[in-house]
Write a protein that binds this DNA or RNA. Structure first.
Lengths: 332, 332
DNA sequence: CTGAAAGCGCTTACAG
DNA sequence: CTGAAAGCGCTTACAG
């Protein structure tokens, strides 16, 4: 069914399309008589007019669309981010396109190309390893882009993130001060800078202590199996041990392992996990975890992006939010 | 920065925009000489041409955009659906707009209006209570719409769903046959048809048995508290009791209650939950749950939608998928 | 084999 | 107070 256009309204109301456009957009500058205004609004109503934003976009060069690229929208962490971004974007009048990169630069590039062709006004991205080229391409054409959660080592663009290194340092110190004899860091075998920061903060404080380092590096594509194997090889119940899981996925896999093997928390081992998820509530012990201020980060990300959209500046302003350790009962 | 257009290519290559359009779209019908073809491709490459899909959409009346409306993208169930839909949509060349309705007809309507103005080619929706009017408006203009998970009682459009009533019947029978003296159904206090079906199937089999019915009705906006209160009032440990949670959120809230109150599963009570989620893995007992074939549903939803987009027919073909009870160790 | 031209549905200076 | 006209970046019959 053909949809009614501004032209149809004009014809029926007996005015020009210009006049219709003016009243539909409520422009105050151009004074249209109340009579024709009312007439036009009436006609629009009766023929069930829906504005065609694509036509408007073409003319105004603004689509009011923004693209969000996450690693995987089915991951709790990213779906929570997406929700906050959605709410915030709506407030600014933007509609959200969403895509999952699956941590591959190819899919990531495909997504930036796609979004760019769809003329999104800007993108919020969680860049993957080796996505520099794709991002650089965007930057070269002064495309508004803001990173969230992650950042790129060699490309300087605005973004929001947490104090990855510092929060790990502080967690490590906490555990050291509690007298743990063994502290296991469970992280990804990756080049993702924010995760390296997470690990580096931990390693630094461990190095400054008397405690021997024990890092389990997990393949991003083989989480469950790797975590099980890693923990099996590393946990020494004869020592006072704490485990620090540096992501929600790692935490969930690790806690699953502990439950399955009947290892009690915090009696046998202590645990700190990353990110908030309802899943932790089902664990026999309430799990201490690192909380990221997702809502605040989303608000700031949209603010940053909107600013870039309205007035592009080639700066790389990064906003760092403090993550917070929420103490529950999983650390002795 | 102004982006290069087809016109720019034409000017540099010394050909017409029509010719550029033809080679860029690889139209085989119109034979363009290899020489000019190559020249055009070269120019496009060097000036870093990105096609403007908005202009194309305006002309072709196809945006290659589809809108997905879920209740809440941060809900595990919907983010899993979204992911499957995303993958499937991509295969068909569609990009995904996502919005959360928060179970309110107002937000739902806002989303359909927004998506419609953005000229999406079609929508996949999980309609909320009292969204009939918004959907009817879409149908009236022959907008391709497909429901997923849910359906509308009074509006007949294509959709995919599971056999809500039957799976509940079968679960109820299973529990009755195992000799439970008390079976508690935990559901929402709602008018959502698919959830009423879920409950009805259960009620029907209970009514046919000797077992007194015990239904806990939860306010959608107060899940945790209501579940805690309901279970506290209903669980009678002196009887052989089973609890059937009819959604993932209800399952998570309920299992959290059980853990907190040190009620052992399946020793003290038996449990069956709905939907698959990693969260269940952290529970001390492996939880039996009802599995929906999300991938298959997503594939079929996109297929249905694409068919409607290419050839609109006012039918209401519903495809029902069988849900499956995955038996773990939470039922004695 | 290639181009001129119309048109998709809007917005917006400009003229009157 | 209102309208004629150009133009956003494409596609696509049609003509040659």
């Amino acid at each position: 069914m053909k949809r009614a256009s501004i032209k149809d309204i004009a014809k029926i109301a007996g005015v020009s399309v210009a006049t219709v456009s003016y009243v539909l957009n409520k422009k105050e500058g151009s004074r249209i008589s109340e009579a024709t205004k009312e007439k036009i609004l009436n006609v629009a109503e009766t023929i069930n007019y829906t504005p065609n934003k694509i036509a408007k976009s073409l003319k105004t060069n603004k689509s009011k669309l923004i693209g969000l690229i996450v690693a995987d929208i089915s991951n709790d962490f990213y779906s929570n981010i997406a929700r906050s971004i959605e709410d915030e974007a709506m407030k600014f009048g933007y509609t959200l396109l969403i895509g999952s990169s699956d941590e591959t630069p190819e899919k990531f590039k495909k997504l930036t190309d796609l979004f760019s062709e769809q003329q999104v006004d800007g993108m919020i991205i969680a860049p993957v390893v080796d996505s520099d080229e794709a991002v650089l391409k965007l930057i070269k054409e002064e495309y508004p882009v803001v990173t969230i959660d992650r950042y790129l080592k060699n490309v300087n663009i605005p973004g929001v993130m947490i104090n990855n290194s510092e929060i790990s340092e502080s967690i490590c110190d906490t555990l050291i001060n509690k007298g743990f004899e063994e502290i296991i860091y469970v992280g990804y075998d990756t080049k993702l800078p924010h995760l390296l920061d997470r690990q580096e903060g931990f390693d630094k404080r461990i190095a400054a202590s008397e405690i021997p380092a024990k890092n389990i590096m997990i393949d991003l594509n083989n989480i469950t199996e790797d975590v099980y194997k890693g923990l099996e090889e590393s946990i020494d119940l004869s020592k006072k041990t704490a485990i620090y899981f540096s992501s929600n996925k790692l935490g969930i896999a690790g806690l699953t392992y502990l439950v399955k093997n009947n290892i009690k928390v915090p009696k046998d081992v202590s645990v700190i996990a990353f990110d908030e998820t309802e899943a932790y509530h089902l664990f026999p012990t309430e799990v201490s975890f690192v909380q990221q201020p997702l809502t605040e980060m989303a608000i700031e990300a949209i603010k940053l992006l909107d600013a870039q959209i309205n007035n592009y500046t080639p700066d790389g302003k990064k906003i760092t939010f403090p993550a917070k350790l929420i103490n529950k009962n999983s650390v002795k």
